[in-house]
Every structure is written in C-alpha cells, then in structure tokens.
Simulated scan of single mutants.
Amino acid sequence: MAVEVKELLEAGVHFGHLTRKWDPNMAPYVYMERNGIHIINLYKTAAKIDEAGAALAKIAASGRKILFVATKKQAKDIVAEKAGDINMPYITERWPGGMLTNFVTIRKAVKKMASIDRMKKDGTFMTLSKKERLQVDRLRAKLEKNLGSISDMTRLPGALFVVDIKREHIAIKEAQKLNIPIFAMVDTNSDPRQVDYVIPANDDASKSIDKILSHVASAIAGGLAERKAEKDAAAVPKEEAPKAKAAPAKKAEVVAEEEE
C-alpha cells in the first residue's frame, strides 16, 4: 500500500514538538517552523515508511517475530489492536526490565502462567486452599497483564517497533545491546541516531500513531502472506514426471547367408 502524503497530513503526522524542545539531529527531517512548532517533512516520512515496511516484511517472511513497544496512553490500544491483528507480540504496560537481555527469566515467568492454566484444567487448582487459590489467581492476572501478549514469543524477536523512543529508552538500550534492529516513530524531540529505521512522525496524537501503525501492520501482513504462500507451495507434492514409454524392441533381422 503506497503511502500518500495527503493522508499523513490529514492525520496530523507533520506536527512536531516546540522548537525549544527539539533534538538538532532531527534537522534533516524538519520542513519548517510554524508558531513555535517544528513541522515534519512528510515526503521524507512517506519514504521512510516505505523503507521500514519493506524491511519489516522481509523479517516477517523469514518467520521471526516483531515486538511492538508502546506504553503511552495514546498508543496502547492502537498497538494492541494492530499487533494483535497480525499475531505479533507487544508490550503496552510497563516494560519488564531484562525483557530482552534476560529473556530466559522472562520465559520462565511465561511458563509459570502456562503451568497455572494446566493446574486449572487438570483440577489441581481446586485442591488448594481458598487463600492459595486467591494468591495464584492474583499471580496469574499480574503475569497476564505484563506478559500475556508475548506468551507465544519463544525466542528473541527479529526486530523491535517502538512508539516514542524517549519514553521507551530502556527497551531501546536492551535491543542495542543484542543488535536487534530498531524501527520507530521518532518525533522532533528525540535522537534518531538510536534507531536503525527512523519514521519521522508525531508520536503524541492517536490519529498519527494509528496511521503509521496501519501502514506498518499492512507491510508485515504482506510478509506473512508471502511466507504462507511459500510454505503452501513447498507442501504440495511435485507431480511425478510421466515415465517414458519403452521403445519397441527391434526385431532381429535374420540374414541367411549362403555358405559358399
């Protein structure tokens, strides 16, 4: 889906922060200043969305997960919806420290959640006292709130997509340590050098976030569809080539030679 500058404009993607709050490293993406606010160059935004989308589609096609991170109020519901639609993990509550750098511990917490679910299915849960059941339920609810959306992420993600890199600086640092590619919406008050794939955009307005995430999710969905098509093609057994018909044996010619 090609990105139209007009639709970005209508969604307010071009509104940056106050000029006094800007990060000079965002200068290449700033079009002008108006009423004390920086205006983002939407032609560059559109180009960067296309670039990021192509890279994300490749990662999705390879079978790796893309972890979405957005804990700010305006972005939480949008990210949960868009990431959920394409079956990608996301963090919209507080970032669990060591989520990436101490992934083994995080996986143990997810397994704990699964073991509680098993207890409820096999009846073990009901053998506990009322107080113990209450404690287990509380633990399960806490784990679900913080880690429920990443329960299917069995290994480190192939990429991170972040809304507001200033707010999610811990997640950014962890991904940098592990050389995980970082894709992000970057506003004029942030340093784009921390990100591998910069999408210069207003990261405060829900309309802007929704518009960018829609394009990103669409690109990832395209990568997933490509992967599915390849899998389906590989699963179809190749038709056996028809066996060549044996050539009829030549009749031996008996030549009667007259003996001299």
Rank of each mutant, 00 (worst) to 15 (best):
F103G: 03
I165A: 06
I180N: 08
R133D: 01
G158R: 10
A141C: 05
T188C: 09
V136N: 05
F183W: 00
S190T: 05
K166M: 09
V110W: 00
R167T: 15
N189I: 03
I66H: 07
A171Q: 02
I78M: 08
K131A: 15
V195I: 13
V79F: 07
L160C: 07
I172S: 03
Y197A: 03
K121V: 13
A184C: 05
I106L: 06
N87F: 10
R118N: 06
K121Q: 12
N87G: 11
R140E: 12
T154G: 14
L128V: 11
T105S: 15
K82S: 08
A109W: 06
D164S: 11
D117S: 10
K82D: 02
V163G: 01
R155Q: 15
M119G: 07
V79P: 04
G98L: 03
N146P: 00
P89W: 01
E81C: 10
K65C: 04
D196P: 00
L67F: 10
W95Y: 15
R167L: 13
A114C: 03
Q74Y: 08
R64Q: 15
S190N: 06
T188R: 06
K120W: 03
K142S: 11
S149N: 14
E93D: 15
G63H: 09
T188S: 14
T71H: 14
V79S: 05
I180C: 06
Q74I: 08
I150N: 02
F125N: 00
L134W: 04
R107L: 12
D196M: 01
N146D: 13
N189P: 11
D152H: 12
M88A: 08
F161E: 00
K108H: 11
D77N: 15
R193T: 14
D117W: 02
A159V: 02
K173S: 13
I116P: 03
A80H: 06
T105Q: 15
S151W: 01
L156A: 04
E93C: 10
G97S: 10
F103P: 00
A175N: 00
M119S: 06
G63M: 10
I91D: 00
D77P: 02
K121P: 00
T101K: 07
L128P: 00
A60I: 06
A70I: 06
G84Q: 09
D122C: 07
Q194Y: 14
G98I: 05
K121D: 12
R193Y: 04
P192V: 13
G63T: 04
A114F: 09
K111M: 11
K120M: 13
N146G: 09
K120E: 13
L139N: 11
E168P: 09
T101F: 09
I182F: 02
G123F: 07
D117T: 12
E144Q: 13
V162D: 01
D122M: 03
R193E: 10
D152V: 01
S62T: 07
R155C: 11
Q176F: 07
R133V: 06
F183A: 02
K108D: 14
R193S: 14
K121I: 12
E174M: 09
K166W: 06
D77L: 13
P157E: 06
A61Y: 11
K111Y: 03
T154E: 15
I106F: 00
A83M: 04
R155I: 09
M185G: 06
V162S: 02
A80E: 14
M88E: 13
G84P: 04
A61E: 15
I172P: 02
I116L: 05
K112A: 15
Q74S: 14
L178M: 14
K120Q: 13
D196H: 05
A159W: 01
